[in-house]
């Protein structure tokens, strides 16, 4: 199935929860999805006969614009050799996304990394701790407005 067929199929099942499809080159075509429904939609993407996205290649956080963070899901189907990119936007004021770690186990550590770097909360995640930074780290380093702390554990951080 190509991106438009997938989009139409999702649209018939989830209606308003599916946003528009973007096919601007050179990036892979992607579909915007309502953040709150990502878990249900992911189960559908994995289990539907015509989609079979059995693998989550990558889950990344993005500091999308002034008010929003984004989570990007790169999916791949080994069974049908097709790919799909799904994006969700969440407001920086309340960045909560349902977890997909119960759909693809890969998402567990990827979501922890996104949480570590961007600070969005993955609702329902079994073990949402920082994965790269130390546990007592302050702030979320990959946000564009991140300011490095002056001292960490008595060690001066800036040059």
């Amino acid at each position: 199935m190509d991106i438009n067929e997938i989009h139409n199929l999702l649209k018939t099942v989830f209606e308003d929860a599916i946003g528009e499809v973007k096919t601007d080159k050179p990036v892979d075509p992607y579909i915007f999805v309502e953040a709150g429904k990502i878990n249900v939609i992911s189960f559908f993407l994995r289990d539907e006969e015509r989609l079979q996205f059995d693998s989550l290649s990558c889950l990344s956080g993005v500091d999308y614009d002034k008010d929003n963070l984004a989570v990007v899901y790169h999916l791949y189907s080994f069974a049908l050799n097709q790919k799909l990119v799904v994006k969700v936007l969440v407001p920086k004021s309340n960045p909560v996304v349902p977890t997909v770690s119960d759909v693809w186990a890969t998402a567990n550590w990827h979501e922890r990394e996104a949480f570590d770097m961007f600070g969005m909360t993955f609702e329902g995640h079994p073990d949402l701790r920082r994965i790269l930074c130390p546990e007592d780290w302050e702030g979320y380093p990959l946000r564009k407005d991140y300011k490095v702390q002056e001292f960490y554990n008595g060690m001066k951080v800036p040059y």
Binding site: C133, K156, V157, P158, Y159
Partner: peptide, 17 residues
């Protein structure tokens, strides 16, 4: 600190610290 001297938020800028 090497190449991380400016933007390496997680790097100690010299072990002599």
């Amino acid at each position: 600190g090497g190449p991380y001297w400016e933007h390496g938020y997680h790097v100690l800028k010299g072990v002599d610290r």
